[in-house]
Amino acid sequence: MVYYFTSNTVSPAAFIYVGKDKVENEELIKYGLDEDFHVDNLSSAHIYLRLDEEESWESIPKPLLEDCAQLTKANSIEGNKKDNITVIYTPWSNLKKDGSMATGQVGFKDQRKVKKIHVPQRENPIVNRLNKTKVEKFPDLRQEKENRQKELRRRDKAAQLARQKEEAKVAKERKEKAWHRDHAYDDLLSEDAVASSSNQDRDPDFLDDFM
């Protein structure tokens, strides 16, 4: 089971989700798509944020970041009881998992891609607002990931075909311009043009016109 929350601090609204337990967390780690939040040095649920394609994990709006941090704190047995905790977040792609780690435990491939947020205390208005949007679902995470990857491949292929079409169009236009440039004087050098400019077939008195 996965719990989904809606944050209306941004427009369009953002979706935040979390596994019901460490087993579900393991599935989210395996088939995740987006950002991961959890309490630094304390056990907590892994909170995920689904970003729009145009958004970067490094520029998440502050109100949305605070929603994620508060939800992370609220879903940590230890962290929820303490003040002045640190919540860390990183792209899902930066999560590292190996066989020596416990269920739900993760590491990071690159510490430079890990950011921190200081949370002074639990903000009940934020947590209560998010809990009112809470929805329980039983998603097929593997299928969702496969569908997402298939859609991205389709878009990449469409973009590649569009680029190739545009490149072919530009190449054709350049070729046509080059042909016109190279043959700009063809009409002047044609037999009729040469004949019309020759004095050979002109009337002997044609010079009288200039007198």
Results as ranks from 00 to 15, higher is better:
28 L>T: 11
113 K>S: 08
48 Y>P: 00
55 E>L: 09
97 K>T: 09
47 I>E: 13
197 S>E: 12
174 R>G: 03
115 K>V: 02
47 I>P: 11
98 D>E: 11
38 H>S: 14
193 A>N: 11
67 D>T: 04
154 R>G: 00
208 D>M: 08
126 I>L: 15
28 L>H: 14
15 F>I: 13
3 Y>C: 05
194 V>S: 05
150 K>N: 09
209 D>V: 00
144 E>H: 04
81 K>F: 03
105 Q>R: 12
52 D>E: 14
194 V>T: 09
85 I>C: 09
110 D>W: 11
84 N>F: 05
114 V>A: 11
57 W>A: 07
88 I>S: 07
103 T>D: 10
36 D>N: 08
135 V>H: 13
67 D>Y: 09
42 L>P: 02
28 L>M: 12
112 R>D: 14
104 G>W: 07
41 N>K: 15
24 E>R: 06
157 K>L: 06
114 V>K: 08
6 T>Y: 10
163 R>H: 04
77 I>Q: 12
160 Q>S: 08
107 G>M: 10
157 K>T: 01
12 P>Y: 10
145 K>A: 08
80 N>S: 15
100 S>N: 07
55 E>Y: 09
118 H>N: 13
149 Q>S: 05
145 K>H: 09
148 R>N: 12
145 K>R: 15
80 N>C: 06
46 H>P: 04
81 K>T: 05
78 E>D: 15
180 H>G: 00
94 N>E: 03
112 R>H: 07
51 L>P: 09
136 E>C: 04
154 R>S: 06
208 D>G: 00
195 A>C: 01
143 Q>W: 02
43 S>Q: 08
100 S>R: 08
9 T>N: 15
62 K>W: 12
13 A>V: 00
101 M>S: 00
161 L>W: 04
39 V>C: 10
168 A>T: 07
106 V>S: 09
145 K>L: 13
183 H>C: 05
210 F>A: 01
138 F>A: 09
41 N>G: 01
102 A>G: 13
146 E>V: 10
33 L>G: 14
203 D>N: 14
62 K>L: 14
157 K>P: 00
164 Q>Y: 03
3 Y>I: 07
36 D>I: 13
16 I>C: 11
136 E>L: 11
4 Y>S: 11
98 D>H: 03
77 I>H: 13
1 M>H: 12
100 S>V: 00
114 V>C: 08
138 F>K: 14
153 R>F: 05
174 R>W: 02
142 R>I: 00
139 P>V: 01
85 I>V: 12
